[in-house]
């Protein structure tokens, strides 16, 4: 697996953050072109985005080795957010082979993301 995503230090670096792919305009395609990837589109100025950061970290831990989980700062990577027509965040998108297949807009409880993942990837049930 190509782990070429850069490791951007976050405010609180902890164990589960290490499991998250830090996606950029440069490495997005390479990291999402094959299989399923869950991507958290966020920005520093978006307060509800901060609220789901720990949930995304939990998901990364829970699905470690089974599903890639990444985050993309829409401010620093406008090309990718433009390409997918993203106009509202927080937005968590499930990609399959580079294409979005499902998404959740706004901050929701962990089990909502779980349900979306399992609905689209039954073998993770």
């Amino acid at each position: 697996m190509g782990m070429s995503a850069s490791r951007v230090p976050s405010e609180q670096t902890n164990a589960s953050d290490e499991l998250i792919l830090h996606l950029t305009d440069q490495n997005f395609d390479e990291n999402t072109k094959e299989g399923f990837v869950l991507v958290d589109f966020w920005a520093t100025w978006c307060t509800p985005c901060r609220a789901i950061a720990p949930i995304v970290e939990k998901l990364a831990e829970k699905y470690n080795g089974k599903l890639k989980v990444g985050k993309l700062d829409t401010d620093e990577n406008p090309l990718t957010s433009n390409r997918f027509g993203i106009m509202s965040i927080p937005l968590v998108v499930l990609f399959k082979d580079g294409q979005p297949v499902d998404s959740i807009l706004g901050a929701r409880p962990e089990q909502f993301y779980d349900q979306m993942i399992k609905k689209n990837i039954p073998e993770l049930e």
Binding site: S81, M87, S88
Partner: peptide
């Protein structure tokens, strides 16, 4: 268009415009 041009949070989404 909710989330694709319709928003209830200017501070969240303003920077996309």
């Amino acid at each position: 268009f909710y989330g694709r041009g319709v928003s209830t949070c200017a501070t969240c989404d303003g920077a996309f415009y």
